[in-house]
Design a protein around this nucleic acid. Structure first.
Lengths: 211, 211
DNA sequence: TTTGTAAAGTGAATTAAATCACATAAAGGG
DNA sequence: CCCTTTATGTGATTTAATTCACTTTACAAA
């Protein structure tokens, strides 16, 4: 295959495929066809084949995909053949809940540091043993702990300035839970998690389909 | 305009527009052009006009959009000209943090009930005064409290059965934080919030752009 | 070794979404 | 009252994503 630009949607689907594949692997299944996997993921079989084809040939014609191999291949594609150290900025309700949440570590994301601006919190220890640093120590700690991704769980008003500090500290990946549009340079990749937008979408559907 | 099918992406952008418009309104701005709003939201001006055109004509040619009116119109489109009672299912780390999180109420979503399955939690009161019910009382409480949307914050393993119970109880909108693919009938609308997928996307970008 | 079958891989076709570019309408100034 | 300016609304165009449908390849059974 040539070098087409890869749709972002395809990348996100790879994550979905991994989730499904890992579940199938736990069930002891060794090989799966694009058709069966597609059904499990709720997508079109050709889409799976095409998504994978962007990166190589991972299947066996007439047989399907060896699940163990495919998981490994997709993880390598996504850069998940390693762990990623991440930092939480904002240790409020949401921030501390996320730190305790098991899903991050399960997928190889390790909270290696936590930051806040509240003097009462600085120096305290979180249940998992992390010390809460002042946000002004961001750059130093980011270097020390080899952190590559920042998770913003501050109020909206602080989000932009935190983002700026992260970028100065050399963090190029940001997962933003604050309900604010943050501006970053080209080199930095931001993903927003705004559940109220999702709720709005639900409200729209409920309103229009006569409920 | 005729009756084309409206892209889901357009619906989601309407939420983005509202966020920006409310911020502008707070700044005392009364009128805005699609061009300025587009810049603020990071989209193309024509896109804004087209998104709005799916639903009517809300602007004034040569002038722009009256912010106050446009907010009201978009809210009406999305079904946000009211409040929505929602239920939290799963009062663990994440669930209780979300309940305390101010963003829901700010956008008109009211946690009207909370459910869990842990006997130690049933009957306890949350900081905001909500009593934690047993999941088996879902149907009864949903009716009593006029709940239309369920938020699933349980472990993945419980997500599908909770979804089933929600649907039986007559809840047709689900916001799913559990990392599991849930199957629902046509009538029900599900939105998934899976931050590990977003993280995977960040990891991919960091890996490919030489970091 | 041959042959039938299953399923990946992929160019072509289709469908959907985003953008352009212009016709249209409102407001203000001369 | 007309002319200029400005910015909307929208058909046409372009771009992107998805799906189809066919070709290729591996395996297994005869």
């Amino acid at each position: 295959m040539k070098f087409p630009k890869i749709p972002m949607a395809a990348i996100n689907r790879l994550s979905i495929y991994i989730r499904a594949l890992e579940e199938l692997e736990e069930q002891g299944i060794k090989v799966i066809s694009s058709e069966r996997l597609a059904k499990q993921c709720g997508v079109n079989p050709a889409q799976i084949r095409k998504d994978l084809a962007y990166f190589g040939e991972f299947g066996v014609r007439g047989v399907g995909y060896r699940i163990e191999d495919l998981i490994r291949e997709i993880k390598e594609i996504l850069g998940l053949d390693r762990t990623w150290n991440i930092a939480m900025i904002g240790v409020g309700n949401l921030g501390s809940a996320l730190i305790r949440h098991g899903n991050f570590i399960k997928h190889g994301y390790v909270f290696a540091a936590a930051f806040d601006i509240d003097p009462h919190k600085i120096g305290k220890r979180l249940p998992n043993g992390l010390i809460i640093h002042h946000i002004d120590d961001l750059e130093k700690v980011v270097k020390e702990c080899d952190i590559h991704i920042g998770v913003i769980a501050t109020p909206a008003s602080a989000a932009q300035s935190v983002a700026n500090q992260l970028i100065i500290a050399g963090v190029n990946g940001i997962l933003n839970f604050a309900p604010a549009q943050i501006q970053v340079p080209e080199c930095c990749h931001v993903e927003n998690v705004d559940f109220t937008i999702k709720l709005d979408s639900i409200a729209y559907h409920l309103s229009t389909s006569g409920t």
